[in-house]
Design a binder for these strands. Structure first.
Lengths: 322, 322
DNA sequence: ACAGCATTTGAACAATTTTTCATTCTCCGA
DNA sequence: TCGGAGAATGAAAAATTGTTCAAATGCTGT
């Protein structure tokens, strides 16, 4: 019956051609080929299975989209957006951060367009600041932005990287800042501050946010938390010694995504990580220095959507190849 | 707004990739891209329109199927089946005729499978004879085969090219032969013969056939009608002089598909051409010598389905290019 | 010949894609 | 600021495609 098999293949090719290239409906093809409509479907499936059908998209973006898709599947994400990696060898991270900011702003804008009357939990850092900066001025009065972690520094009333203000300014949305520092001086202080009614309200709000837009912090000397003076050198050293490789909402984790056992983590003021598990968590981070932190953060299994740059994405994929 | 246009294109490429390559549904893509499901559809349509989506079938059969489709569109056919052209330089037309016979037999078998209890009008000639020969023995007792034109020669009771007998033998179907010669000696004789009740019954049957399977005759020295002695040399010369280039059901037509004005046509015994307009008309013919006849026959606008060889098909298309 | 098993088949059902259409935006020009 | 042409939008309807399942068919070994 090799004969029959071959005739079947021929029919399959015919059906596939008529369907994919000819643009006829399965019904029309069935008529022409003199078989049932279901059989036409089976034939073109067969042609696909046999690898006769080649579909390709000819556009520069293809490799990017394919890479995004790989990340999604590998890390169980819901979505992933990649931006071109900028050459940051001379000017630090600014190019990549700007690109991430633009992509993040698009992403956030689309969300606001689509989901009015929602509350968005916001972190801080250089990257998120860039997102806020890239936002177009567009009235979104029914949305609310809320800090998910302490936003005051030890030295000034307003954290330079705080993004809530910029966002509310651009969108006319309501903004809620967590009126505490990023880090308390002692564990007891943290308990006290978190017990404040005004703080509790904000945390409650943050807990019920519909979307979280967060940065991922690294533990290098370029980390926002360190640069801005919110974490001292000795504190950072202690964290690193405990295996910390990055942070999400101020909680420092190791390369496996496990929260490190270090008293620092008990002094951080902000939404508990577990609260994020319910909502939609979007993390924005990229650049050479963030690679290890992103890998660890992904391992936590909290992140739904990752916005990063292509080079970092490739590294993430390469590392997982083993 | 070149910016917006570009963003739209990017989205279109993303949507198309996720749809065609990624295999996601428009719903899933809508979620991921943050747009409506309808918009996803519009985006991937756009990507197609912009020519980003390339679909191809990788198989030798593709050129054949594409050519079939060209013929269908050019000549307003319902269907077209092409067989590989055999090299007939040495052995006349036998290779091509065998191939046509096989294809025709497949076609007819499929029809019988699909449409039981139908009546099939049958012509005659070398090609149709080859079809009958290629038919597999398969019981089809509820079908009926009926001659659409006179099948007796002047010299013998059974025409050597008559195919009804072979078909009924192979299928067990009922067969109805038109019990008159192909050509009457005079116009008056034709009237007389056609008036016979036994002939009238056959013609009525033929008129209501569900499918017609016909050959296309040429006017060369290799024509079946001539070779079998049913048409004399002088008759053929007269027909050619009148512009005849081929025949369908014994009616000779010119290169424009117009029935030629020649008394010969008035002596032919068989179903009137107009009766074919209602039914499904399948013509089987191929080979170098038939080209002009096929072109003329197609011009008549009666043929629904053409079964021919690839070389002939290419010639038909080439001639129409102007 | 015939029971038993695997494959094939198409009708009915389910899901997805495509089209339609009324409405809402947006952009110009007065 | 207003009015109107044209584009963009999404809900709903229509068409197409994909899946399921029970019945039919064919194949194999006894």
């Amino acid at each position: 019956m090799a004969q029959a098999r071959e005739a079947e293949t021929d029919l399959a090719v015919r059906a596939a051609w008529l369907s994919y290239v000819g643009g006829y409906t399965q019904e029309q093809i069935a008529q022409r080929l003199g078989v049932s409509r279901v059989k036409v479907h089976r034939l073109s499936s067969l042609a696909q299975d046999l690898g006769f059908v080649k579909v390709s998209i000819e556009h520069d973006l293809v490799s990017t989209v394919a890479l995004e898709n790989s990340l999604i599947e590998r890390f169980g994400l819901r979505n992933c957006i990649l931006v071109p990696s900028m050459d940051d060898s001379t000017n630090g991270q600014s190019g990549t951060i700007t690109a991430l900011g633009t992509a993040g702003a698009h992403y956030l804008s689309r969300y606001l367009d689509r989901e009015p009357a929602t509350t968005i939990g916001i972190g801080w850092g250089k990257t998120l600041s860039s997102v806020a900066e890239s936002m177009l001025r567009r009235p979104r009065p029914s949305n609310r932005f809320v800090s998910v972690l302490g936003s005051l520094t030890r030295h000034a009333a307003a954290n330079p990287y705080d993004v809530i203000h910029q966002l509310t300014h651009k969108t006319g949305a309501e903004g809620f800042i967590m009126p505490v520092p990023f880090i308390a001086d002692a564990v007891a202080d943290r308990t006290l501050l978190m017990g404040q009614k005004s703080v509790g309200k904000i945390v409650d709000l943050a807990r019920n946010a519909d979307l979280y837009v967060l940065g991922i912090g690294s533990c290098g000397p370029e980390a926002s938390a360190f640069e801005s003076g919110q974490v001292t050198k000795s504190e950072m050293d202690a964290l690193r010694a405990a295996g910390a490789i990055g942070d999400l909402v101020g909680r420092f984790f190791d390369e496996d995504g496990k929260i490190v056992d270090c008293e620092f983590n008990d002094r951080v003021l902000g939404l508990e990580l577990e609260a994020l598990r319910g909502g939609q968590v979007t993390a924005i981070a990229g650049g050479r220095g963030k690679l290890a932190a992103i890998r660890g953060a992904l391992a936590m299994g909290i992140i739904h959507t990752l916005i990063t740059d292509e080079t970092t994405a490739e590294s993430l994929m390469a590392a997982e190849e083993t």
